[in-house]
Design a protein around this nucleic acid. Structure first.
Length: 261
DNA sequence: ATGCCGGGCGAAGCCCGA
């Protein structure tokens, strides 16, 4: 069984102990990380390599930053989302692994937040989503197991938020965002969590403020999106919500899948 | 409550996140 996870750690340096503790207990084979908030040279390679992981990093000072940790060798690494050479934000990294002679392609994605919606931040989000859709369309033509995992900053449905009305015009939930997300999923991508669970109000993020965690006021925005060739092997998906209750937590928790590959 | 907490930067207070 191949276990693949995604986790927005909100600073790799501030979260290193939480991360290594969770790696030891969850023993994922591959982990897509987001919001490293450091350049590649400052990434704590040693502590993670000591747990048996190969590491690919697309870093940036202060903001963003994504990585892939893998117990399998990482090949053909792509840093940055194709489609705009002027985009300097480190929000995408992609690599291939080979498991039992089968090639898998995995990407770690940190999709822009987009708030406030009346600014260029929202235009950047929508443009980034168009580029992601275009790139996913190309990757899907390879007809391989493809896992696009990360912090999408998109609440897919009203079942994925504690108070839909309060989020109605937010960049994470408004109609225009969800329509753009549907353009992406309609390529033929499966939301692994929804494929495995029908229940509402299962979240991957709780704000640090206003007792959001204690009141379970969360949102589900961290997703593993699967090509048909990956979805065919999906055996389970879950959210490690207990991580949110630990000392010095990220505001996001790990989400993971198991594939019978 | 478009910033209540938390992190980066850098050494106080601002920028940013969702």
């Amino acid at each position: 069984m191949l276990k693949i996870a995604t986790w927005n750690v909100n600073s790799i340096k501030a979260r290193l102990v939480n991360l290594t503790d969770w790696l030891k207990e969850a023993t994922p084979d591959v982990v897509c990380l987001q919001e490293l908030k450091c350049v590649e040279e400052a990434f704590p390679f040693g502590a993670i390599e000591d747990l048996g992981y190969n590491i690919a990093v697309n870093g940036q000072k202060t903001y963003n930053g994504v990585a892939i940790l893998s117990k399998y060798r990482l090949d053909d690494i792509v840093k940055g989302l194709p489609g705009d050479d002027s985009d300097e934000q480190a929000r995408y990294i992609e690599a291939q692994i080979t498991v039992n002679e089968r090639l898998l392609r995995i990407a770690s994605i940190y999709l822009p937040n987009g708030n406030p919606v009346d600014t260029d931040k929202y235009a950047y989000k929508l443009g980034w989503m168009d580029r992601l859709t275009a790139h996913a369309r190309e990757l899907l033509t390879y007809e391989e197991p493809l896992i696009l995992a990360g912090d999408y900053n998109v609440i897919p449905t009203a079942a994925d938020v504690h108070d839909p009305a309060a989020w109605a015009d937010d960049a994470l939930f408004r109609e225009e965002t969800r329509a753009k997300f549907h353009e992406f999923t309609n390529l033929g991508l499966t939301d692994a969590f929804r494929a495995c669970h029908t229940e509402s109000h299962r979240y991957s993020f709780w704000d640090y403020q206003a007792g959001a965690w204690q009141k379970d006021n969360g949102i589900r925005i961290d997703h593993l999106m699967l090509s048909p060739q990956a979805a065919d092997h999906l055996k389970g998906c879950d959210i490690d919500r207990m991580v949110r209750g630990r000392e010095k937590p990220s505001d996001h928790v790990p989400v993971w899948i198991e594939l019978d590959i």
